[in-house]
Structures are given as structure tokens and as C-alpha cells.
Design a protein around this nucleic acid. Structure first.
Length: 271
DNA sequence: ATTCTCACCTGCGGGC
DNA sequence: TGCCCGCAGGTGAGAA
């Protein structure tokens, strides 16, 4: 579910409502990817200062410390004045004076991790090696081009790794590569300046469009206010194996790269 | 140092 | 109808 657009849409869907709230209770369900790193009781009384995002992590800034939330593959947040009783897949919850924030995550690849301050080692461990933010001014074309040249990997896998640019997951990597007319299996270092510039622009463009569309709801994504996304209807290649290319009508092809499916048009995206 | 594979976990859809 | 298999939006750990 959650690539950068879904995380950003989630962030926007509850930030203004939770800012200023004071935590009255915190509770955990089944274990997530990593331990919380503190006793949930210790969060009681903390005030929420803001909700940020770095890559696919949400950062709930508190008056003491920060909570990192990751949605994994199947996570979503809900925030409402009152939520129904917790179910078997609800694994983290904050009760505040502005409402309840809950992480629903059937597969439990998600995480909630507490860091006591900005220099906590866990922050460096989880965020320290992340690449550029594609929607920010620091998404430098020059750095991007240099990163392509320095890699020996296929471009799709370089994008997914998140060390050059963050937030591009399996859907948006396929979509950006289609827009840039680059085949996912192309070695990154063999992408010349013109195609690199197209890809740089395509990454930003597809992510912006997806945010504007409320993200992609493939099966069950919802923002914290319950709204679904509709970018999936705009996808040119993702999940469209065998369907006609929107540009040239050639059937969309699928290949496996590192246990992930990549979709592309064999004509529009020449090797 | 990179790159590649595996692992984590649950649910769902397709084929038999 | 029911079982088994493969696949699904991510990413760190360990091996090569």
C-alpha cells in the first residue's frame, strides 16, 4: 500500500487535527517489525507538536522525543474522535484529547519506534542512509545523475533501494520508468543525460500526481480520515500485464526483478 | 562496498 | 466447497 504518496496523503489527513493534542493513553497489540523502544506508559502526558515525513516514515514529533511510524506493506492509520473497538490487526493506539490514532496492519511489516531525541541512534539507523526527498528542493538532478553513474544495478532496483531517492516503491517506480521511456531492466549507469533528466522529472511528476489523487488504493488503502485514493486508475503499466499500452496499444509486459514484479511497455520503453 | 536473496506475516484469488 | 500455491504497496540482515 504505502509508498511516498500514500504516506504523505496519510500525513496530511490528520496532522492539523492531532497537533497540540495531549496523549492520554498508549497501547500496543501484537509485535510489529521493531520494538517500540519505550514503555507505552511513558508516552502519557506528551503533547504532539507536528507530523513530518521522511521517505515512507511518518515522524510524530512530541514535546519529548519523536515517534517514527512506518506502514510496511499493509499498514494504515486511522484518526478520529472515537474509533470502534480494536480488532485483531490493530497493533498500536494513542488516545489523545483530540482523538484516537490507530495503526491497523494485518501483515505487521510496519513499525512504531520511539526516539528520545534528535540524536538517538535509532534515528540514524532507520533514516541515516535514506536518499533525496523527491518532492523537495534537495532533489538534485546532478546528484541523481551521479548516482545513476555510480550504480551497477538495474534502474528499477536502484530506485526501490531508496538510497539515491526515497519514496519510490513498486508502483511508482514502474510508472516513472514508463513516463521516462526507460525499461526497468536497464542498467542505471547506462542511462544517458537526456533519459536521466526525463526520469528525474518523471519521478517528481508521478509522485505529485499520486498525492493529488489521494494515493493508490489497490485493495484497502485509506488515509487517516478514511478516504481512499484513486491514482490506480491512472496507472499506465502497473498491474496491467497483457493490457494495451495507452500510447501504442502494445500489450504491457511483466518481468520479475528481485522478487518484485516490474511492468513496462516493450515498445515505448526500449532496452 | 555494492548487490542479491531471504525473511518477516496475513489474506486473497486462481487452479484443481 | 475446500485445499494448495503464488502473490501482494517494504526493507533490513546476511551472504556472495
Amino acid at each position: 500500500m504505502p509508498e511516498l504518496p500514500e504516506v504523505e496523503v496519510t500525513r496530511r489527513s490528520f496532522e492539523s487535527r492531532i497537533v497540540g493534542a495531549r496523549i492520554a493513553a498508549a497501547s500496543l497489540g501484537k509485535p510489529l517489525r521493531w520494538p517500540l523502544g519505550c514503555n507505552p506508559e511513558s508516552l502519557v502526558g506528551r503533547r504532539v507538536l507536528g507530523v513530518g515525513r521522511r521517505g515512507k516514515y511518518l515522524l510524530l514529533r512530541l514535546d519529548q522525543g519523536v515517534l517514527l511510524l512506518h506502514l510496511g506493506m499493509s499498514g494504515r492509520l486511522c484518526f478520529a474522535p472515537t474509533l470502534p473497538a480494536a480488532g485483531p490487526h490493530d497493533h498500536f493506539e494513542l488516545r489523545t484529547d483530540a482523538g484516537q490514532l490507530r495503526l491497523h496492519d494485518p501483515r505487521r511489516f510496519g513499525a512504531v519506534v520511539w526516539a528520545p531525541d534528535d540524536r538517538a541512534p535509532v534515528l540514524d539507523k532507520l533514516l541515516g542512509r535514506l536518499g533525496m526527498e523527491p518532492l523537495s528542493d534537495d532533489f538534485s538532478l546532478a546528484v541523481f545523475v551521479a548516482g545513476l553513474k555510480a550504480s551497477r544495478a538495474p534502474i528499477k532496483q536502484l530506485l526501490l533501494a531508496g538510497k539515491l531517492v526515497v519514496g519510490v516503491g513498486n508502483i511508482y517506480a514502474s510508472e516513472a520508468l514508463f513516463l521516462a521511456r526507460i525499461r526497468p531492466t536497464t542498467l542505471a549507469r547506462r542511462i544517458g543525460p537526456a533519459r536521466a533528466e526525463r526520469l528525474h522529472a518523471a519521478i517528481r511528476s508521478v509522485l505529485e500526481q499520486a498525492v493529488a489523487a489521494g494515493g493508490s488504493t489497490l485493495r484497502d488503502f485509506q488515509a487517516a480520515d478514511g478516504r481512499s485514493g484513486h491514482f490506480q486508475h491512472s496507472a499506465h503499466v502497473y498491474g496491467r500485464e497483457g493490457a494495451p499500452c495507452h500510447t501504442c496499444s502494445t500489450p504491457i509486459a511483466m518481468v520479475r526483478q528481485g522478487q518484485r514484479s516490474s511492468f513496462f511497455c516493450p515498445v515505448c520503453q526500449r532496452p
